[in-house]
Amino acid sequence: MKKTVAEIEHLNKSFGNNHVLKDMNLKLVEGENLVVLGKSGSGKSVLIKCLVGLIEPDEGKVNILGKNISELKIEELNLLRKKVGFLFQSAALYDSMTVRENLEFPLRDLKSKPKEEINELVEEALRNVGLEDVIDNMPSELSGGMRKRVGLARTLILKPEIILYDEPTTGLDPITSKEISNLILDIQKKYNTSSIIITHDMECARITANRMIILKNGTAINEGSFKELSELNDEWVHSFFK
């Protein structure tokens, strides 16, 4: 049986009167790609932000790599965060830094490493996403797809065990979306990472998912493979697959 790398138990989160997550449960096992599907505003992004401690849940338990994150000190949480990559919806590249500096930034704690080794890590991460040529460009000079790829390279540079993707294909054309989805799959195979992919892009879900969860009003209502869910006799679930 595969090891559980991330687990959420009875998670609740509200913003004022808006109850975003209601008794949410989730398990992520080693090496799997778990797609969380849901309409906009169903609490998908809040869910993964709770996983890395960016949002504090009102109730419930979040376990990452065997550690309950609410019990960790900030220094311990920061160490744990280095093992969890996060690709933001907007890629969140640092505007004032070049692509190289963006990728070097998470490596700041490795000051003891020689410059050549850091350069090699940066170049390798960019090679993995097929963007070696833009190393000295500023983020403003990149297209949306390229920004996502650089964001992914920055996520990969610390060789995380878990990667969280927040709507990785949103705002991209179908061809670039497919490229990004295939890239997610390649990364899973190459590094044996476990991933949670938040999306409402069915093509991305079809390509990347080993298992899927469907969120409705902050609760997981269905779980299964892409094929199983697409064959479900539920009007609401079926509307995603049309």
Binding site: F88, S90, A92, D95, P106, R108
Partner: peptide, 18 residues
């Protein structure tokens, strides 16, 4: 504020940087 809006501050935080 623009770093906050574009999630750059969150990105720093999840990289384990204060």
């Amino acid at each position: 504020a623009s770093m906050k809006v574009t999630e750059q501050i969150d990105a720093m935080e999840v990289s384990g940087i204060n």
